[in-house]
Write a protein that binds this DNA or RNA. Structure first.
Length: 515
RNA sequence: GCGGCCGUAGUCUAGUUUGGUUAGGACAUCAGCCUGCCACGCUGACGACCCGGGUUCAAAUCCCGGCGGCCGCACCA
């Protein structure tokens, strides 16, 4: 296959493997789909994206970050509803071997509602299918016995097989079960938020979209607790004029695929989005993706229909970003979870999850509501790479935002002789000591080394040349424009710190060199 | 899970139809020479037939099984 026949995903995957961003895990054993390994550059990029999320989304709101376990006792997911809902009844056609959702068949061919089918046991599902004479919609064949496919990974905790544990399918439950302590930690004030960035497990039937759909992935769950009787978002002013591209449920049902473009303010006044905080987080999600260089018209929010929503959600939007290979891909979900999770844990554990709020009369006790923005970290990495990928004069270039680049600076001696490598080593060591991530490269021609650095998105290249030996200056090269400036070595630390903190731009780094 | 196609160095690939020299090339990597700002050139080196079984004097090539991938179906709380 020639390069021009490949789509962007293939080009990026190949580059990702070659240069150490990510690749399929367990390749020596043939690989298992749904698992990837982040290599040296990829893990830095992923960490920097998560750090950017912390700085952009978390810190300004004073949201707390915690870390809980991946394996959790069965009780947690019985309470959360996942044991009941995080599975699908499947029937197989005995003739053509196709598999179908048993409940969907009954809804479609027996006119039952999803609330009706949801309650049925496997035996009842089979009885209904037989009684209504539901046959394979493809070939008319008979169905075998329905089976449950559990999408959570189950395990036994310790040597007692009756102690069922599950790998968490979301990090959210780790927050809900710790609610009481967390509420104390914020000195019993609402609203407040908690975030967890960690691995989650979902045993997908057949994941086939590389890093887009994984069985083990990193989820960023923000649970924001509010008083349902005081649902105003005081920060709304900051985003009220931000426009959102929404496909609301009503239009989706009519088959309208084009989003409507409305400001946050209007989306709320028209009741497209019910909760102010949810609208705020959606606007921030849009801005965050713009920070990853995704333009507005490559983003949209789609409202989930009643039967598409997770069991805990009363209103949900998926934020989607357009990727060349996969089309519109979900990068974040925004769900209004109400008091569902806390009340369920209160019911199952017997522990009081209510909070007390003083009012003018006597005060009231209530269970907080939850607004949840939830992101897939691995997908953010893919998106950042796809939107950073450019070509210039036939060469690949990763135009990553400077704060995300895994390597900040490359240091090159122009030639490997006449004392240039020795002088360059001093610069290299100095920058390491200053805390920068620096790459040393003296292999091959200077052009080849610039090309190598461009491909992994290193924003700046510092070259030590013959003039350096005379006056202590070096050239600094910009990855995106290939322009160069000349600056004093002594001033590099200050200049580079300012540059990477976005205090100054490339042209402020020194005297522009005309060639 | 089903059907179709496929599996050769880090990457891309030739060879498989018709079994037969040392499995060829390009890019990348490394070493040396070279080097004066955008994938320079030369020399050399490293490096592969997915796994297992079978047929055969002989298997990358044919057959069977497994594993994995891609596409379609299904699945995606």
């Amino acid at each position: 296959m020639k390069t021009q026949d490949k789509d962007k995903f293939e080009i990026i995957s190949e580059m990702a493997r070659r240069r150490g961003f990510f690749w399929p895990s367990y390749e020596i054993y043939g690989g298992v789909s749904g698992f990837i390994t982040f290599g040296p550059l990829g893990s830095i990029l992923k960490r920097k994206i998560e750090d950017k999320f912390r700085n952009f989304y978390i810190r300004p709101l004073g949201i707390l970050e915690i870390e809980t376990s991946v394996i959790m006792p069965g009780k947690v997911f019985e309470a959360s509803g996942h044991v009941d809902h995080f599975k699908e009844p499947i029937v197989e056609c005995l003739r053509c071997k196709r598999k179908f959702r048993a409940d969907h068949l009954l809804q479609e061919f027996a006119g039952m509602s999803d609330t009706e089918t949801e309650k049925l046991t496997l035996q009842e599902l089979m009885d209904k299918i037989n009684k209504r004479n539901v046959r394979c919609p493809d070939c008319g064949g008979d169905f075998g016995e329905p089976q449950q496919f559990m999408t959570m990974f189950a395990t036994a905790i310790g040597p007692y097989s009756e102690a069922v544990g599950y790998g968490r399918p979301e990090a959210a439950q780790g927050i809900f079960v710790e609610f009481r302590r967390l509420y104390e930690n914020v000195r019993e004030r609402l609203p407040f938020g908690v975030v967890q960035i960690g691995h989650a497990l979902r045993n997908e039937v057949s994941p086939r979209q590389g890093p887009i759909r994984l069985r083990e992935f990193t989820i960023i769950d923000v649970e924001f607790f509010i008083d349902p009787e005081d649902p105003q978002c005081p920060l709304l002013k900051k985003v009220e004029n931000e426009t959102l591209r929404l496909i609301i449920a009503e239009n989706k049902l009519k088959g309208i695929k084009e989003p409507i473009e409305v400001t946050v303010k209007k989306a709320l006044s028209k009741r497209y989005i019910k909760a102010e905080w949810q609208a705020f987080f959606m606007a921030m999600a849009k801005r965050f993706l713009m920070e990853l260089q995704v333009p507005e018209d490559k983003q949209r929010f789609i409202e989930k229909l009643d039967w598409e929503r997770a069991h805990y959600s009363v209103q949900g939007f998926d934020q989607e970003v357009y990727l060349e290979r996969w089309g519109w891909v979900e990068v974040s979900g925004h769900n209004y979870r109400t008091d569902y999770d806390l009340s369920r844990h209160m019911q199952f554990s017997g522990v009081d999850m209510k909070v007390f709020k003083e009012t003018e009369e006597e005060g009231r006790r209530f269970i907080p509501h939850v607004v949840e923005p939830s992101f897939g970290s691995d997908r953010l990495v893919c998106i950042a790479l796809e939107y950073a990928y450019k070509t210039k004069e036939g060469r690949a270039l990763l135009s990553l935002p400077r704060e995300l680049a895994p390597t900040q600076v490359s240091v090159f001696p122009l030639v490997s002789k006449d004392g240039l490598p020795e002088r360059a080593q001093q610069v290299y060591q100095m920058l390491i000591n200053e805390g920068f991530t620096v790459e040393w490269d003296e292999s091959g021609s200077i052009g080849r080394r610039y090309a190598r650095a461009d491909e992994v998105g290193t924003p700046l290249g510092i070259t030590i040349d013959y003039q350096t030996l005379e006056d202590g200056t070096v050239t600094i090269r910009d990855r995106d424009t290939w322009r160069q400036v000349r600056s004093k070595i002594d001033e590099l630390p200050e200049l580079l710190h300012a540059y990477f903190r976005h205090k100054i731009n490339f042209e402020d780094l020194g005297q522009l060199i005309k060639r």
